[in-house]
Amino acid sequence: MSHRLDEAFARASGRAALIGYLPAGFPTARDSVRLINAMVDAGVDIIEVGLPYSDPLMDGPDIQQAVDIALRGGTTTDVVLTTVAEVTRAGATALVMSYWNPIERYGVDRFATGLADAGGVGVITPDLTPEEAGDWVEATDASGLGRVFLVAPSSSDARIEVVAGMCTGFVYAASTMGVTGVRASVGSGARELVERTRARTLLPVAVGIGVSSGAQAREVAQYANGVIVGSAFVRCILQAADATEAERAVGSLARELSEGVRGR
């Protein structure tokens, strides 16, 4: 329920929430649950479970590779919902991040109901624009899911008002004009985008794309309500020699980021 998203941001009281992304089924269905639990144990406040899709046009090479592995491993929408249920049982607050076609194909109402039943708190839809979201608004309202759309540095003020007005839970501010991926610095337009968004909504504003280190998390946490990290976690796993090392690397990055959002 979206009030559970509100609670997650409230729990972070006075600091930015840390939001960590990992695709379901990556590197395997069982390991992704274990790795997500490790992220939560190490201080990640909200988990974004990726629904692997064949044509992820907003994602850079790391996430493309990860979802490719997940799809080849047989990850389906049902596996994603099961993953959400399992990590929720272990104590996580979990959202799903999904491109639109898999949701439409599964059935908009069926997906929203299934996710709510699994304990999921919301959905980020990176390629669904508010203009196309009629059915989705009804379905998420009915099931109490948070509905997160994106704003970008190129969004006009009027556009931000429309997009933010359609969101519940929080607004996702894309820091950079570009695809997901680890970058040396967070886009300089991110702070301005957060300020422009905050002037038009009471919802928390979380910044994603390009945040990968404790120092970057600390910087973003000074002006945003949430810090979203994806590719950096994925890369830990892609580079690890085995499951144990992956879990250690993910935990260590989560602790570093968690210190970062606490200003340490």
Partner: peptide
């Protein structure tokens, strides 16, 4: 401006492309 043909067409893209 809306680009719909019955239920088809529209815009399903990252927000960053909307302005362009």
């Amino acid at each position: 401006g809306s680009g719909h043909y019955g239920p088809y067409g529209g815009r399903f893209v990252p927000e960053a492309l909307i302005a362009a």
